[in-house]
Design a protein around this nucleic acid. Sequence first.
DNA 1: TCAATATATGCGTATATGTACATATATAAT
DNA 2: ATTATATATGTACATATACGCATATATTGA
Lengths: 103, 103
Amino acid sequence: MDDPLYSKDLDEETLFVVTQTFKALSDPTRVRILNLLFEKEYSVNDIAENLKMRQSTVSHQLRFLKNLRLVKYRREGTTMYYSHDDEHVINVLQQMIQHALHH
Amino acid sequence: MDDPLYSKDLDEETLFVVTQTFKALSDPTRVRILNLLFEKEYSVNDIAENLKMRQSTVSHQLRFLKNLRLVKYRREGTTMYYSHDDEHVINVLQQMIQHALHH
DNA sequence: TCAATATATGCGTATATGTACATATATAAT
DNA sequence: ATTATATATGTACATATACGCATATATTGA
């Protein structure tokens, strides 16, 4: 019964990881932030200005992305610079954006 | 300003398509259904039995997936057989599952 | 220590979402 | 036509989620 041809149901943990990751990519605010970070690292305020969002909105969503380790940050004084931190997921996002753009 | 090095914000339609697609993959019920369909086509009731879900739950989620053209169906009498209908998205899902499994 | 600046976060709220129940619809067989 | 079976769907409800406001925290410089 461990023949890979038998489609077993996914175990709970795998299901959780997969759906959580996709959930991160299912919100316009988060996708716009991740898309901005393709270029380079940005501070929280710079993200907010660029995307015309409130600072708290950006910070909330960055926390979400940080918890899933999709972004990382470095401190410089009081400024936090955020950047991507998961090559695989970033790749998946880029693929999907290209797919959507080319149609 | 159309230098691709300048990270422009995503246009509204692209953003919608991308986030909607990922939203489809962000729910455990839908992912379990799509995962089951990797093997072969299934009827609504067979999906419900296999995954121990209510018929209405399965039908609702199939409608969601059908609207996004992630699944298609064929009729045989009163039975509807559902199967995958978007190679790219299915590929992305499989990638993510493998990524999650191998850690 | 105090003020200024950048970021994080608790809380309230409006909205979105997933599910179940009940029922409608559709097809087939008798 | 009637009955049985498979699927779809309207509605209600509980829960999840995103956002904004206000405020807390942290770092720097005077």
